[in-house]
Amino acid sequence: MGNLGANARLKLGLWLLLMPLGLWLLLLIILPHFELLIFSITDPEDGAFTFEFYFEFFTEPLYWRTFLRTAVMSILATILTLIIAFPVAFYIAKMLKGRSKGIVFAMCLIPFWVSELVRTFGWMILLRESGVISNFLQWSGLAAGPVELLYTDATIMLGLVYSSMLFMVVPLVSTLDSLDDSYIEAGYDLGGTNWNVIREIVIPHAIPGIVSGCIIVFMLSLGNYLTPVLLGGKDSLWFTEQIYTQFITRFNWEQGSAFGLLLLVLSSLIVWLGLKASGQSFTKTMG
């Protein structure tokens, strides 16, 4: 009897513990998306059920091309971030010890103490035609006239990689930290070169970190708004910008909702395909 009571209390405790998570999921994730769904399939004129806003996405090349461009750029940004972050993470996790490790890790964090807007403006000050780098190039005689480094796809890429870096470095450092040095030494001891120790021992071990870092960076890039809009200039097309435009300047909430849900579904699809292609599963990565 007493046992049963304790059990029931335990259950109640568990429910109470789960409550904030449950409420958070319900109020901030499920309900808003449910509302988006309702919006996206309702005709604003007569309130009837309609799929026109989804058709619009697939029939108007402008929209799906924008999505495709956003997805491809995000994938590229993810790959670039991985390539740059991996040596950094390896250096932090394996080469540095004690204090210097903490310092270098903190240096990676510093850019995130200011808001994304400020960071982006920082890049604009550096890269614009009348900016720091352009002036330096002219002063040093490397360039004859002002150099415009802003408003290109490469600039967007730079901004995306820069703002995603930390989110790749952190999971990589934590998985690489858990790789005992003796595995690396064993790799060398058995005749491995740098490259195949990395490829056969370090990377297979770091796969969970690589996959979770990639998912985070991809989703962040895809959902980024400020960086592509501010750094991209006149040709920057970003799907989130399209959603913002539909909601705010067109007052077309129905279309915006449809785009928002499409972004969710299609990006999930891309992540799923990526996991399939790399032979990983979501539970394995997160577990």
Binding site: A186, E200, P204, H205
Partner: peptide, 8 residues
């Protein structure tokens, strides 16, 4: 600790 590669 032998360092047998766990991924192989």
């Amino acid at each position: 600790h032998l360092a047998l590669f766990p991924t192989m």
